[in-house]
Amino acid sequence: MKWADRMRERLHAGANSIGNLGVELFHYVALFGIGAITVYAGITTFIDMLHQEKISVDDILLLFIYLELLAMSGIYFRTNHMPLRFLLYIGVTALIRLLISDVSHHKSPDEGILYLTGGVVLLSVSILVVRYASARFPSVKEKTD
């Protein structure tokens, strides 16, 4: 009976090691893929911007979104933790980009502007809550930062 238990434990440990290796390999491949696609998108957007007669603020904010995506991938690569705050920063930047684009192209204020600014305020409050939780409760920091 003891021989069978030892054999089962060895098989379980081997399967566990192979599974962990597979998960790590997938993380690295996915992170490099996301990083490469983001760099490619940023470079092509930058080149397209150079061919325009006029570069707008929403074009520049799009480059900031690419930069934040790369920073988020780099942090995840180094720490194996998803930086929640960076997702919120990307959301704020995207909403502000949409707001600037909407105001500069349509020039007629409507309730959509209120929805966008409300979204920016909501995401900003979320960032404050996450930062407060990270500073106040160190065990939460590992999960949210």
Rank of each mutant, 00 (worst) to 15 (best):
T93P: 01
V103R: 01
H105I: 07
Y115T: 13
N80C: 08
R85W: 06
F77P: 01
Y76I: 06
H106I: 04
H81K: 14
V92K: 02
S101R: 06
F77W: 12
I75F: 14
L88C: 02
L114C: 12
V103F: 05
A94S: 12
Y115R: 12
L87A: 08
M82E: 05
I96F: 04
T79K: 12
M72C: 12
Y115N: 12
G119E: 10
L116P: 00
L99Q: 03
G118Y: 11
A94Q: 02
Y115L: 14
I75T: 13
M82H: 07
I113S: 03
H105W: 07
H81Q: 14
Y76A: 06
L95F: 04
P83N: 13
Y89K: 01
V92Y: 02
Y76T: 10
F86V: 14
P83H: 08
H81C: 05
I75K: 11
T79P: 01
G91P: 00
G118W: 11
E111T: 11
I100L: 03
A71W: 13
R78Q: 14
T93R: 00
G119T: 11
Y115Q: 12
R97E: 03
D110F: 01
L114Y: 15
S104L: 09
L84W: 03
L114T: 13
V92I: 15
S108H: 09
Y115A: 12
L95M: 13
T117G: 05
L84T: 10
L99S: 04
R78K: 14
T79G: 03
A94E: 01
A94G: 05
I90E: 03
G74A: 15
E68F: 14
I90K: 02
F77M: 13
F77C: 08
I90L: 11
G118F: 12
T93L: 09
L114S: 14
L116V: 09
G74Q: 10
S101N: 05
I90T: 09
L116F: 07
V103A: 03
H105S: 08
S101C: 02
I90M: 08
K107R: 12
M72R: 12
I100Y: 00
Y115E: 09
M72V: 09
N80E: 10
S73A: 15
P83R: 07
L70K: 06
G118H: 13
I100W: 00
K107L: 11
I100N: 00
L114P: 02
D110P: 00
H81F: 05
T117F: 10
K107T: 03
L70F: 13
F77Q: 05
P109V: 14
H105D: 06
P109S: 07
K107M: 11
D110Y: 02
T117Q: 08
S101M: 06
L98S: 08
I75C: 04
D110C: 02
V92S: 02
G119V: 11
S101F: 08
P109H: 06
T117E: 10
A94H: 01
P83S: 09
A71S: 15
P109F: 15
I100Q: 00
L95A: 09
G91I: 06
S108C: 03
I113G: 01
R85D: 08
R78F: 09
I96V: 14
G112M: 04
L114G: 13
D110R: 03
F77I: 04
T79M: 07
I96N: 01
S108N: 10
Y115S: 12
I75Q: 12
V103D: 00
L99I: 03
T79Q: 08
S108G: 04
L98G: 04
M82Q: 06
L95R: 01
